[in-house]
Design a protein around this nucleic acid. Sequence first.
DNA 1: GTCTATATATAGATAGAC
DNA 2: GTCTATCTATATATAGAC
Lengths: 272, 272
Amino acid sequence: MDKKQELMNAAVHLFSIKGFHQTSVQEIAYAVDISKGAFYKHYDSKESLLVSILKRYQAETLQGLERLEIEEDLSPKNAFAKKLAYELESILADRDFFIMVFKDMPTDGNEQLTSLMQEMRSSSSKFHKKMLLDAFGQRIEPFLEDLTTVVEGIQKEYLITIILENRQLSIDKLSRFIASSIEAITLQLDEMEAVFTKTDDNGFSIDSLFGDMETKIKLYSKNTERMLESLNLLSQELQQDEPREFLIEALTDYLSQEKQIEKEVLLLKNHR
Amino acid sequence: MDKKQELMNAAVHLFSIKGFHQTSVQEIAYAVDISKGAFYKHYDSKESLLVSILKRYQAETLQGLERLEIEEDLSPKNAFAKKLAYELESILADRDFFIMVFKDMPTDGNEQLTSLMQEMRSSSSKFHKKMLLDAFGQRIEPFLEDLTTVVEGIQKEYLITIILENRQLSIDKLSRFIASSIEAITLQLDEMEAVFTKTDDNGFSIDSLFGDMETKIKLYSKNTERMLESLNLLSQELQQDEPREFLIEALTDYLSQEKQIEKEVLLLKNHR
DNA sequence: GTCTATATATAGATAGAC
DNA sequence: GTCTATCTATATATAGAC
């Protein structure tokens, strides 16, 4: 077999166990029965080996995703579940790679590495967005980014329990569970508000701002009682037909004393 | 201020940027204006400093969670959202710590570190389980482990986008979104099947087993067509009133050729 | 408790013979 | 392409003076 491929395989395995930095070039070389010096005839550095590994994986998964497109005449939800199952199964087939990425990646400094990781994340996200639109229709569009985050978060968390805690779960059950969960959420979207908003401004909500301030006051303020009372009064006054400007001025100034909510108070001022 | 505390603060910050292994004791020491030698008068090693950091965080969050119990007369769902908001806000207040844990943790080898991490994960999971039961009642119990995984996955994924991609989302909106999503799922539990099952055996499902085999065949087999046909025939035969034993024997043997599904075939044999 | 100097180990990478 | 020997840098940790 190609020595470069052998080196990659050995490296992924070692990286997944000990992490990138904790694995020496010597260990990798010895794992394929060559010396440390010989390693550098194949790769310029340990980092370039890592780059090759990422590129190989990227190429493989791109192939896999393209092959996947061919799907039968299932219900949209079941098709979604099937795609998820394939994805999960392929990740588990390369579980060393998955663990390696989670262990310790030296993204800092190396331009090429950072952009490769970025590319992989974004193509995965694109893939999930397409899957979601195919399964649940255009009407989920305002929540697309949120639903993608939800799918990816759930998926990752289950993968971690399967791989790191070595629990054996049925991928079929899991993918159907995730599909049903996402469907359940889509059924309630009418009563929900998206977290990700197109521009920072469109999504502005006075209620959320007050909610955020309340939480922060309770967590950080040494003067919780007074701050909360001021916040309440401010909220009430703003709901009046003709809010008294001096009172609003006074209360916002007072609230600004608390540095943790300074930013929120400023936002509030700018938005009326 | 206490030099030990100063060292911890500096260390968490550096670890969050460069990772544990990539940060030297010298850097940590210089950050608080002492020499490398002086560092070792405060801590036995870099690892013992890390242990102290984890213990301090553990103590702080335990305090925080206890303070949190006092909640008002909100609807169960809104109370759930509020608790989530507090939790998210406290994590964001210690964002360096969160990033550090995600970057590169040397859990290998060090017994104390591994068990500390384990403790923290399990107390976080206990906390979420209690939150879920309080909000959605005892009837979700069969799905408790799944719902916990879902909550923690979603939470983590949003935190990553907020912190690592530096996106500014409203915690209030986010916590309400997560609460509504979980509620939406709980409304559909009757039509769903749990992924985590009490014992490995109780959760056994012939359908899932066939689903898993189908996925694996499509992904790995060089003989996809024939294997799938055999699988289908086997499934049909098993549904007959009087399955022909010789045929089942023949088909399972045939399917066992594919090493990737050997385990599943064996499971199937043992379960009839 | 703080410093400088040092011990010891090991990393990544190169040189040059075969 | 492979080896051994070596260079250079840097890490953790200790010793001993102040």
